[in-house]
Amino acid sequence: MKRSQKEHFEGWLFVTPAFLLQMIFVYLPLAYAIFVSFHRWNMIRPMKFVGFKNYVHLFSSGDFWHSLLVTFIYVLGTVPTSVILGLLLAMLLNLWWVRGKGFFRTMFYIPVITAMAAAAVVWNWLFEPNVGLVNFILSLFGVSPKGWLNDPHWAIVALIIVGVWKRIGYNMVIFLAGLQGIPRTYYEAAMIDGATTFPRFWYITLPLLSPTTLFVTIIQFIASFRVFISVSVMTRGGPAKSTEVITYFLYENAFNYLKMGYASTIAVVMFLIMFSLTLVQFKVSKRRVFYQ
Protein backbone atom coordinates (compact mmCIF):
# COMPACT_ATOMS: atom_id res chain seq x y z
CA MET A 1 0.00 0.00 0.00
CA LYS A 2 2.75 2.39 0.95
CA ARG A 3 4.57 1.55 -2.22
CA SER A 4 1.61 2.36 -4.46
CA GLN A 5 1.05 5.63 -2.65
CA LYS A 6 4.61 6.55 -3.41
CA GLU A 7 4.07 5.61 -7.05
CA HIS A 8 0.99 7.75 -7.11
CA PHE A 9 2.83 10.74 -5.75
CA GLU A 10 5.81 10.25 -8.04
CA GLY A 11 3.62 9.86 -11.09
CA TRP A 12 1.87 13.15 -10.49
CA LEU A 13 5.18 14.84 -9.78
CA PHE A 14 6.43 13.87 -13.22
CA VAL A 15 3.36 14.78 -15.24
CA THR A 16 2.14 17.87 -13.39
CA PRO A 17 4.20 20.55 -15.19
CA ALA A 18 3.19 19.40 -18.69
CA PHE A 19 -0.37 18.73 -17.58
CA LEU A 20 -0.78 22.17 -16.02
CA LEU A 21 0.76 23.90 -19.02
CA GLN A 22 -1.70 22.23 -21.37
CA MET A 23 -4.59 23.08 -19.05
CA ILE A 24 -3.65 26.74 -18.78
CA PHE A 25 -2.60 27.39 -22.36
CA VAL A 26 -4.98 25.16 -24.33
CA TYR A 27 -8.08 24.16 -22.39
CA LEU A 28 -8.51 27.38 -20.47
CA PRO A 29 -8.35 29.48 -23.67
CA LEU A 30 -10.73 27.06 -25.37
CA ALA A 31 -13.24 27.43 -22.55
CA TYR A 32 -12.68 31.16 -22.54
CA ALA A 33 -13.34 31.34 -26.29
CA ILE A 34 -16.71 29.69 -25.72
CA PHE A 35 -17.44 32.13 -22.89
CA VAL A 36 -16.43 35.21 -24.88
CA SER A 37 -18.43 34.02 -27.90
CA PHE A 38 -21.59 34.84 -25.94
CA HIS A 39 -20.47 38.42 -25.35
CA ARG A 40 -19.83 41.63 -27.17
CA TRP A 41 -16.38 42.94 -26.39
CA ASN A 42 -13.86 45.24 -28.04
CA MET A 43 -11.28 44.89 -25.22
CA ILE A 44 -11.75 48.56 -24.31
CA ARG A 45 -15.24 48.76 -22.87
CA PRO A 46 -16.45 46.03 -20.49
CA MET A 47 -17.82 42.77 -21.86
CA LYS A 48 -21.55 42.63 -22.48
CA PHE A 49 -23.54 39.41 -22.47
CA VAL A 50 -25.52 39.03 -25.69
CA GLY A 51 -26.62 35.38 -25.64
CA PHE A 52 -26.63 33.69 -29.03
CA LYS A 53 -26.56 36.98 -30.91
CA ASN A 54 -23.04 36.44 -32.27
CA TYR A 55 -23.98 32.99 -33.55
CA VAL A 56 -27.14 34.27 -35.21
CA HIS A 57 -25.16 37.12 -36.70
CA LEU A 58 -22.45 34.75 -37.92
CA PHE A 59 -24.74 32.25 -39.59
CA SER A 60 -26.72 34.98 -41.28
CA SER A 61 -23.61 36.79 -42.44
CA GLY A 62 -22.71 36.53 -46.09
CA ASP A 63 -19.05 37.12 -45.23
CA PHE A 64 -18.91 33.99 -43.08
CA TRP A 65 -20.39 31.71 -45.75
CA HIS A 66 -18.19 33.36 -48.32
CA SER A 67 -15.08 32.63 -46.25
CA LEU A 68 -16.18 29.01 -45.78
CA LEU A 69 -16.70 28.71 -49.53
CA VAL A 70 -13.26 30.19 -50.27
CA THR A 71 -11.71 27.83 -47.73
CA PHE A 72 -13.35 24.81 -49.34
CA ILE A 73 -12.27 25.89 -52.81
CA TYR A 74 -8.74 26.12 -51.46
CA VAL A 75 -9.00 22.70 -49.78
CA LEU A 76 -10.50 21.03 -52.83
CA GLY A 77 -7.84 22.57 -55.04
CA THR A 78 -4.94 21.66 -52.77
CA VAL A 79 -5.66 18.26 -51.25
CA PRO A 80 -6.36 15.97 -54.24
CA THR A 81 -3.58 17.52 -56.32
CA SER A 82 -0.95 17.23 -53.62
CA VAL A 83 -2.04 13.69 -52.70
CA ILE A 84 -1.90 12.44 -56.30
CA LEU A 85 1.44 14.12 -57.02
CA GLY A 86 2.84 12.84 -53.73
CA LEU A 87 1.75 9.31 -54.57
CA LEU A 88 3.24 9.56 -58.04
CA LEU A 89 6.63 10.69 -56.74
CA ALA A 90 6.57 8.03 -54.00
CA MET A 91 5.87 5.31 -56.55
CA LEU A 92 8.73 6.44 -58.75
CA LEU A 93 11.09 6.56 -55.78
CA ASN A 94 9.90 3.13 -54.66
CA LEU A 95 11.07 1.45 -57.90
CA TRP A 96 13.81 -0.90 -56.82
CA TRP A 97 16.26 0.08 -59.55
CA VAL A 98 16.08 3.85 -59.06
CA ARG A 99 19.30 5.35 -57.75
CA GLY A 100 19.75 8.49 -55.68
CA LYS A 101 16.57 7.88 -53.69
CA GLY A 102 17.86 9.76 -50.65
CA PHE A 103 18.84 12.73 -52.79
CA PHE A 104 15.47 13.00 -54.52
CA ARG A 105 13.60 12.48 -51.28
CA THR A 106 15.49 15.38 -49.70
CA MET A 107 14.94 17.62 -52.72
CA PHE A 108 11.19 16.97 -52.68
CA TYR A 109 11.02 17.51 -48.95
CA ILE A 110 12.68 20.94 -48.76
CA PRO A 111 9.44 22.99 -49.13
CA VAL A 112 7.94 21.11 -46.19
CA ILE A 113 10.60 22.31 -43.76
CA THR A 114 10.82 25.81 -45.21
CA ALA A 115 9.01 28.57 -43.38
CA MET A 116 5.78 29.36 -45.17
CA ALA A 117 6.13 33.08 -44.48
CA ALA A 118 9.52 33.40 -46.15
CA ALA A 119 8.42 31.12 -48.98
CA ALA A 120 5.32 33.27 -49.47
CA VAL A 121 7.53 36.35 -49.91
CA VAL A 122 9.42 34.46 -52.62
CA TRP A 123 6.18 33.32 -54.29
CA ASN A 124 5.00 36.95 -54.35
CA TRP A 125 7.95 37.63 -56.55
CA LEU A 126 7.41 34.55 -58.73
CA PHE A 127 3.79 35.58 -59.32
CA GLU A 128 4.66 39.18 -60.20
CA PRO A 129 2.41 39.88 -63.22
CA ASN A 130 4.85 41.73 -65.50
CA VAL A 131 8.29 40.25 -64.97
CA GLY A 132 7.56 37.31 -62.67
CA LEU A 133 9.00 33.89 -63.39
CA VAL A 134 5.64 32.08 -63.46
CA ASN A 135 4.23 34.21 -66.26
CA PHE A 136 7.53 33.97 -68.12
CA ILE A 137 7.52 30.15 -68.00
CA LEU A 138 3.86 30.09 -69.04
CA SER A 139 4.68 32.37 -71.97
CA LEU A 140 7.15 29.76 -73.23
CA PHE A 141 4.17 27.44 -73.62
CA GLY A 142 2.11 30.15 -75.27
CA VAL A 143 -0.07 30.86 -72.25
CA SER A 144 -1.11 34.49 -71.91
CA PRO A 145 0.11 36.27 -68.74
CA LYS A 146 -2.18 36.22 -65.71
CA GLY A 147 -2.64 38.88 -63.07
CA TRP A 148 -2.26 36.21 -60.32
CA LEU A 149 -2.37 37.94 -56.94
CA ASN A 150 -3.96 41.07 -58.39
CA ASP A 151 -6.73 39.17 -60.14
CA PRO A 152 -9.76 38.04 -58.10
CA HIS A 153 -10.07 34.90 -60.24
CA TRP A 154 -6.44 33.85 -60.20
CA ALA A 155 -5.38 34.81 -56.66
CA ILE A 156 -6.92 31.68 -55.14
CA VAL A 157 -5.29 29.57 -57.85
CA ALA A 158 -1.94 31.08 -56.94
CA LEU A 159 -2.51 30.18 -53.28
CA ILE A 160 -3.49 26.64 -54.27
CA ILE A 161 -0.29 26.26 -56.29
CA VAL A 162 1.74 27.38 -53.27
CA GLY A 163 -0.21 25.00 -51.02
CA VAL A 164 0.38 22.03 -53.32
CA TRP A 165 4.07 22.91 -53.60
CA LYS A 166 4.39 22.99 -49.82
CA ARG A 167 2.59 19.67 -49.22
CA ILE A 168 3.76 17.26 -51.93
CA GLY A 169 6.90 16.27 -50.04
CA TYR A 170 5.07 15.34 -46.87
CA ASN A 171 2.59 13.17 -48.77
CA MET A 172 5.44 11.51 -50.64
CA VAL A 173 7.17 10.51 -47.40
CA ILE A 174 4.01 9.01 -45.91
CA PHE A 175 3.23 7.17 -49.15
CA LEU A 176 6.78 5.83 -49.31
CA ALA A 177 6.35 4.36 -45.84
CA GLY A 178 3.00 2.90 -46.91
CA LEU A 179 4.44 1.39 -50.08
CA GLN A 180 7.30 -0.19 -48.19
CA GLY A 181 4.76 -1.79 -45.88
CA ILE A 182 3.19 -3.79 -48.72
CA PRO A 183 4.62 -7.31 -48.59
CA ARG A 184 6.71 -8.23 -51.64
CA THR A 185 5.12 -11.66 -51.81
CA TYR A 186 1.90 -10.17 -53.19
CA TYR A 187 3.73 -8.77 -56.18
CA GLU A 188 5.68 -11.97 -56.67
CA ALA A 189 2.48 -14.01 -56.71
CA ALA A 190 0.96 -11.58 -59.21
CA MET A 191 4.07 -11.81 -61.42
CA ILE A 192 3.80 -15.59 -61.48
CA ASP A 193 0.20 -15.19 -62.59
CA GLY A 194 1.48 -12.94 -65.36
CA ALA A 195 0.09 -9.59 -64.13
CA THR A 196 1.67 -6.59 -65.87
CA THR A 197 2.51 -3.21 -64.39
CA PHE A 198 -0.88 -1.56 -64.53
CA PRO A 199 -2.96 -4.43 -63.06
CA ARG A 200 -0.34 -4.80 -60.31
CA PHE A 201 -0.81 -1.14 -59.46
CA TRP A 202 -4.60 -1.25 -59.71
CA TYR A 203 -5.28 -4.53 -57.91
CA ILE A 204 -2.46 -4.67 -55.37
CA THR A 205 -0.87 -1.29 -54.70
CA LEU A 206 -3.94 0.93 -54.64
CA PRO A 207 -6.16 -1.25 -52.40
CA LEU A 208 -3.37 -2.01 -49.94
CA LEU A 209 -2.42 1.64 -49.89
CA SER A 210 -5.95 2.88 -49.26
CA PRO A 211 -5.52 3.34 -45.47
CA THR A 212 -2.43 5.48 -46.13
CA THR A 213 -4.28 7.45 -48.79
CA LEU A 214 -7.17 8.10 -46.45
CA PHE A 215 -4.80 9.13 -43.66
CA VAL A 216 -2.85 11.54 -45.87
CA THR A 217 -6.04 12.99 -47.32
CA ILE A 218 -7.55 13.77 -43.93
CA ILE A 219 -4.32 15.15 -42.49
CA GLN A 220 -3.99 17.46 -45.50
CA PHE A 221 -7.65 18.35 -45.37
CA ILE A 222 -7.22 19.61 -41.82
CA ALA A 223 -3.93 21.34 -42.59
CA SER A 224 -5.27 23.18 -45.62
CA PHE A 225 -8.46 24.08 -43.81
CA ARG A 226 -6.16 25.99 -41.43
CA VAL A 227 -4.36 27.89 -44.19
CA PHE A 228 -3.31 31.30 -42.90
CA ILE A 229 0.29 32.30 -43.51
CA SER A 230 0.27 32.32 -47.32
CA VAL A 231 -2.98 34.32 -47.31
CA SER A 232 -1.65 36.75 -44.73
CA VAL A 233 1.60 37.38 -46.58
CA MET A 234 0.48 37.16 -50.21
CA THR A 235 -3.07 38.48 -50.55
CA ARG A 236 -4.48 39.57 -47.17
CA GLY A 237 -7.79 38.11 -48.19
CA GLY A 238 -7.97 40.15 -51.35
CA PRO A 239 -8.37 41.18 -54.07
CA ALA A 240 -12.07 41.85 -53.49
CA LYS A 241 -12.17 39.26 -50.65
CA SER A 242 -11.54 36.51 -53.20
CA THR A 243 -9.03 34.79 -50.86
CA GLU A 244 -10.64 35.59 -47.52
CA VAL A 245 -10.33 32.13 -45.94
CA ILE A 246 -11.89 31.40 -42.57
CA THR A 247 -8.70 31.89 -40.53
CA TYR A 248 -8.11 35.25 -42.11
CA PHE A 249 -11.73 36.21 -41.54
CA LEU A 250 -11.20 35.37 -37.86
CA TYR A 251 -7.91 37.25 -37.67
CA GLU A 252 -9.38 40.39 -39.25
CA ASN A 253 -12.38 40.46 -36.95
CA ALA A 254 -10.22 39.99 -33.89
CA PHE A 255 -7.20 42.15 -34.53
CA ASN A 256 -8.29 44.68 -37.15
CA TYR A 257 -11.86 45.35 -36.00
CA LEU A 258 -11.36 44.28 -32.35
CA LYS A 259 -14.62 42.31 -32.37
CA MET A 260 -13.44 39.81 -29.79
CA GLY A 261 -16.84 38.23 -29.16
CA TYR A 262 -17.58 37.76 -32.83
CA ALA A 263 -14.07 36.45 -33.53
CA SER A 264 -14.44 33.96 -30.67
CA THR A 265 -17.69 32.77 -32.24
CA ILE A 266 -15.83 32.11 -35.48
CA ALA A 267 -13.16 30.27 -33.49
CA VAL A 268 -15.76 28.05 -31.78
CA VAL A 269 -17.40 27.16 -35.10
CA MET A 270 -13.98 26.45 -36.61
CA PHE A 271 -13.20 24.25 -33.66
CA LEU A 272 -16.37 22.23 -34.11
CA ILE A 273 -15.61 21.67 -37.79
CA MET A 274 -12.03 20.65 -37.14
CA PHE A 275 -12.92 18.56 -34.11
CA SER A 276 -15.15 16.38 -36.25
CA LEU A 277 -12.44 16.11 -38.89
CA THR A 278 -9.89 15.10 -36.27
CA LEU A 279 -12.21 12.45 -34.85
CA VAL A 280 -12.43 10.94 -38.32
CA GLN A 281 -8.65 11.09 -38.56
CA PHE A 282 -8.16 9.26 -35.25
CA LYS A 283 -10.55 6.54 -36.35
CA VAL A 284 -8.68 6.21 -39.60
CA SER A 285 -5.19 6.14 -38.13
CA LYS A 286 -6.17 3.29 -35.85
CA ARG A 287 -7.03 1.17 -38.84
CA ARG A 288 -4.03 2.34 -40.74
CA VAL A 289 -2.01 -0.87 -40.89
CA PHE A 290 -4.77 -3.44 -40.99
CA TYR A 291 -3.14 -5.56 -43.67
CA GLN A 292 0.00 -6.41 -41.73
Binding site: P29, A33, A254
Partner: peptide, 19 residues
Protein backbone atom coordinates in the same frame (compact mmCIF):
# COMPACT_ATOMS: atom_id res chain seq x y z
CA UNK B 1 -6.00 15.34 -21.56
CA UNK B 2 -2.55 16.00 -23.00
CA UNK B 3 -3.18 14.16 -26.28
CA UNK B 4 -6.57 15.85 -26.55
CA UNK B 5 -4.90 19.21 -27.11
CA UNK B 6 -3.95 17.95 -30.56
CA UNK B 7 -7.62 18.44 -31.41
CA UNK B 8 -7.45 22.14 -30.57
CA UNK B 9 -5.65 23.93 -33.38
CA UNK B 10 -3.81 27.17 -32.50
CA UNK B 11 -6.12 29.23 -34.73
CA UNK B 12 -8.99 28.41 -32.39
CA UNK B 13 -7.21 29.57 -29.24
CA UNK B 14 -5.55 32.56 -30.91
CA UNK B 15 -7.97 35.16 -29.58
CA UNK B 16 -8.42 33.85 -26.01
CA UNK B 17 -4.72 33.07 -25.66
CA UNK B 18 -3.97 36.63 -26.66
CA UNK B 19 -6.42 37.88 -24.05
Amino acid sequence: AIIGTLMVPPEVTLVPLYI
